[in-house]
Amino acid sequence: MRRLPARLPVFLGVLLLLLWSLGPIYWSLVSSLMRPADLVADPPHYLPPVWTFEHYGKLLGATSSYFGTEIQSVWPQFKRALINSIVTSGAATIVTVLLAALGGYAFARLRFPGRDLTFALITATLAIPAYTVMIPLYRIMVAAGLIDTYLGVTLIYASAFLPLALWLMRSFYAVLPASLEEAAALDGAGRLYTLFRIVMPLAAPGLIAAALLTFLSAWGQFVVPLVFSPTLGTKPLTVLIPEFVGKNYVDYGLMNAAGMLSIIPPVLLVLLLNRYLIRGLTAGATK
């Protein structure tokens, strides 16, 4: 950055990086704001010649039209799927982070028989995908009557995302200075009191990172709900939106609009909590 000629390649590189990362999202966003006729223009419009919210209206409004014809609104379905996404991702995040926060502390600070083996076994499942166990899990869930229930989906998400959250929490606890816990112990504070009132607040960045990673993974899950959420009872946005891509007729405006609405939570989280996310992603890699 000191020499002027050195700046040009960096500038071009940044431009290229931004185009690669955000270009497709920009294209989807402007497509969602174009009239159906402008969507199929050749050459394409890189900005909508006429801005329209008709695709969003179809998703969010009571009635809507397509090429002037009155058609049924998809709002009732979209609303259910949106609620399902929020409930399952939220519940999975709470359960996962809570269990990982408790267990991670035990693995980091307490000595008990079987500790190292249990930890090694659980984190080893990071290397095997959740999909490996999906078929027997399906039979277990059928037997337990948990297909298409919030409880069933939440438990599956928790089991899939726990290893990473646990790994993260343990590494965050491990770098905290133990002197505070010692001081608390000398003052006569119990271990649980110390954990909740002293250790957990200090490990807050770890809790936020684990919550972020879990929420984003759950929000984006597709295969698990494809199998375990057959109806709108628990079907999330990720399963509903591809259904808009019909066999012989694809409403690309609607598809892009639905996609853009579904990425609002992840994009907001990245913008607001980027720092924690990056710490979480690199926690296992740089130690």
Partner: peptide, 22 residues
Amino acid sequence: LLAALIVPWALPPVVNALVWLW
């Protein structure tokens, strides 16, 4: 820049695929 870079990673893979399908 990091935030801009990381956005595609944070999105549902299904939505990514739909964006590219288009």
